[in-house]
Write a protein that binds this DNA or RNA. Sequence first.
DNA 1: CTGAAAGCGCTTACAG
DNA 2: CTGAAAGCGCTTACAG
Lengths: 342, 342
Amino acid sequence: MVGIKDVARAAGLSVATVSRALNGQSAVSDGARAKVLSAAETLGYRPNVVARSLRTDRTRTIGLVISDVLNPYFTELARSVEEEARALGYSVIIGNADERADLEGHHVRSLMERRIDGLLVSPADGRSPTTLDAVSGPTPVVFVDRWIPGSDAPVVRSEGRGAIRDLVAHLYGLGHRRLAVITGPAATTTGRERVEAFRAALSEFGLSLSDSHVGSGDFQAESGRLATEAFLDLPERPDAVFANDNLMALGALDAIRDRGLRVPDDIALAAFDDIPWFPHTAPPITAIAQPTAELGRVAVRALAGLIAGEPATSTVLPAHLVVRRSCGEPDPSSPTGGATRE
Amino acid sequence: MVGIKDVARAAGLSVATVSRALNGQSAVSDGARAKVLSAAETLGYRPNVVARSLRTDRTRTIGLVISDVLNPYFTELARSVEEEARALGYSVIIGNADERADLEGHHVRSLMERRIDGLLVSPADGRSPTTLDAVSGPTPVVFVDRWIPGSDAPVVRSEGRGAIRDLVAHLYGLGHRRLAVITGPAATTTGRERVEAFRAALSEFGLSLSDSHVGSGDFQAESGRLATEAFLDLPERPDAVFANDNLMALGALDAIRDRGLRVPDDIALAAFDDIPWFPHTAPPITAIAQPTAELGRVAVRALAGLIAGEPATSTVLPAHLVVRRSCGEPDPSSPTGGATRE
DNA sequence: CTGAAAGCGCTTACAG
DNA sequence: CTGAAAGCGCTTACAG
């Protein structure tokens, strides 16, 4: 591999001058700069960033630990994070926790050993000791989407309460009274909040949530399937189920189809998180959409600020209800009325 | 940050012994080892891998440059790559090219500067000079899914020819004669191969592919929508369209719905790449499935082998047709007959 | 088994 | 504006 010494030799200058010319910070004569640039070019010199990082104690890299890459929500988040980070001169390394606390710990630890400049994390488990250690350590940390209550890192997230209330009003207006929910893990903030907001909205409408109508999932598809099967086995099956993320809605769809049942005729379905496929499922799924890409951008900016020594800023962005046809909504039946089949 | 010197001081030993005890390679007395381990534990020592990498000239990291993170196919590939790499003691850094040659170049370059031990790449553009440079350089490279003909890195990919022939036979059997295709970029191997295989299969059945029935896409959703709109504007619209990836099928679905048309009644649709949502779209989509996770695992093993100095091995795994209902297949109509709506 | 020392490839005060 | 030198935190021959 060609190193800075080779460039210095070729340019007939010292490595110090080569370094300065290449980094463009300090003053270098035009002649020297030209010689360095051309030598670097012809030799195909690529700086060794590991050496640079060791020396400067900065890696210009941020870590992003997400709970599940297979979840389109996180995938979109990751994309916008990388985009914004790149614009700000940072690289991002993604760790996929796969909703497992141990894997989350593995990735956070590994990123810390890499001496990332800052960490963006959406904790798979609010009690992960490694993540807690990271938060209390010297490396700046910002929570995205999910966070750990009590820790003092800023959090950038979306507030679903209003949209969940809108959803309950919507279901109520459609005549549904026996509502059920498939939750995420109680160890996550989003897991807890979405049920709580649902329960609160229900009581506003004089409805209550019986224990048998609360299926506990883990934000992954299989758990949505299992919870839905349990609902369908109930003597009085629910009118409508609210899956607290898109993957569990997929699992619910699997379970309902396997029973030969139909949405919304036999059971209504709504989901938290909107994804590009929801307009095309049978039927199109009513969902709560988060401003996902914006969340990613804001989180990166907050982290970059922290790295630069600015004060921490938390942000809460609103989510909103997107009404489609999976809750028994009237058929638009317009001449160009979409992919409806009845 | 606590460094190896701090541990050495606390343990009353030299940094050399601490290093040896921690890495468990060379012989260290049990007493010394115990002292080191406990000192490291109480101090919360985490090795600085950037220093280690600079010294050992190995990062135990591989790069993975994929063409589009928003594509569930690549997302699944990335997941299996990370899993297998982790099992082998490697970390992986993902770069998302977003189907752009310039971004692909950016990520490949950035990964090289990070001195990754090896690179897995699915080129967004077969002519990217940076990627070509990487292949001819000293860092081991393995192509996954897409590759660059003529370069001598091993390739791990799936062979769709047989499945595409099966698909054409299937469409033919269903009575479709005017077949159309939405291709990926001609600059990618998969982009070219899938049309070519389709065209070859067509001629086997005495059919031909008119130019107006070839929509050129870029593997992203919007291009699928545009190509489909053009098909629908044709005086004689095609009976069936074969979208060469799942995202372009999504775009096709958007276009068809916006016209108030229905699949498969008005036009049949099939896709390359199968994803978990396809069983649930309206109607469920007939698709060609790749052994995606297996591809990822095999690619990582090939790369790890290369890094270890073993000879290069290429692998081709078969894809297969998954028949559902989007091509006008007869309704199963069984009592448990799925989410059918008619 | 253990330690002193060199060195990985850079950047950056410090002199000049 | 330029260069010689120190040093970032590790690992690893080399002696002992």
